[in-house]
Nucleic acid binder design. Structure first.
Lengths: 213, 213
DNA sequence: AAGCGTTTCAAACTTACGTTTTAATTTGAT
DNA sequence: ATCAAATTAAAACGTAAGTTTGAAACGCTT
């Protein structure tokens, strides 16, 4: 009656995803991974080639569908509405993140944390492989936000998008900067819906705030 | 005419701070540190005891003065004004961060990046040593924000503070989440004053936005 | 100048890492 | 059933990590 055990490569990916989030890439050894995945040590190099390639595989398994979901939401929104509201635009990004966070089969909230962690560690992977492959993501959002907020100059818009995506990433990643001091004042990332309830108004307010003279 | 060379312990701290930011704690070896600091390999263990203790020393050298500066600004503001504005409150945190970012003698922007990096890596150091020592920081800000935003419930206020500090930390840390995709669309953290110009309005707007029914 | 605690130095130690190798085992088509 | 390919297994390899050691060099007081 137990669920069928995933194959070796999948078990490695699942365990790696969790351990990379918990301890970071460098601090996670192949021996930790293979032990918890109950596979032989050599299996990682056999199936993926190297530890670096394993990381890329872990990353790409989640990122590609997430980006695709966001762009699909964006497509659907642009065909449905003539004039895009900032809130609906923000939601096209948040909804796929939320769905991902609530779906354990797709890594649950783990991957968003991994993404956040990888961003600040600025891996070579993100600077090289990903940047070329997914520049369309930011281009699409930049254009959409420009249409929704035409009163903003390109520099001000870039900064606001930077801030907005920063806080959204951090929110889903559960990096509670205040928790360190207060000992879990907020039950972080436990209820993703609760995050969105407070996150969307905050981000939208920052994005649409009037420009100062 | 050259500046007098700092002593061994200080050189180790300076180099470590930079390397921990660039490569992370785990990926920075003592041999990298001692080589760039032009000290003997054993000097780290002699002066600090261990690599972990070195990290704590690097961290504490900057954090304590930063926290003290913030609290001093807060004190000065509370004695000067009866009713605190959200903007002035935000500024009590941003101004010390900005001063730190612009002062190479105190680590410049490096330490804020280190702080941000350490937050998402959630080191044992931050969970254990720091949380007890500096809980006063969050308590003071929580109370101040509660006075400035009395219309917000405790839960909503906690979330908004969480979001606000998230984006502020990330802004100073220069973790440009969009840069990865666009290849340095924004010249991040080059001009700290520019950050503040756009950061403060964004954060304030999010904090003061009206609560929804 | 002598003595003594402090600091520096070169070298080695132990351990753990990522990776490779070679053989055993399983799998799937004929 | 057989054979070839794919996968798993155990063991070892070479390297680099943090740490320790013991002697040499330094700095300061007497």
């Amino acid at each position: 009656m137990e669920a069928s055990r995933p194959d070796t490569a999948t078990r490695i990916l699942d365990v790696s995803e969790r351990l990379f989030v918990e301890h970071g890439f460098e601090a996670t050894s192949l021996r930790m991974i293979t032990q918890q995945a109950e596979v032989n040590l050599a299996a990682v190099n056999y199936h993926f080639g190297s530890k670096d390639a394993l990381f890329e595989a872990v990353f790409m398994r989640r990122l590609a569908p997430l980006i695709a979901s966001c762009l699909a939401e964006l497509d659907e929104l642009e065909t449905r509405e003539e004039k895009l509201s900032v809130e609906s635009l923000v939601t096209t990004f948040i909804r796929p993140c939320l769905a991902l966070s609530k779906d354990p089969a797709r890594g649950g909230a783990l991957f968003v944390r991994l993404l956040s962690r990888t961003l600040v560690e600025n891996h070579r992977l993100l600077r090289e492989t990903i940047s070329q492959q997914y520049s369309v993501f930011v281009q699409r959002y930049s254009r959409a936000f420009h249409h929704a907020l035409p009163q903003l100059g390109v520099e001000e818009l870039a900064w606001r998008m930077h801030f907005a995506f920063s806080v959204m990433f951090n929110a889903f990643a559960g990096n509670d900067v205040l928790k360190i001091f207060t000992r879990s004042q907020i039950v972080t990332a436990r209820d993703p819906d609760m995050i969105v309830k407070y996150l969307v108004p905050f981000v939208v307010a920052g994005l649409v705030s009037p420009v100062e003279g």
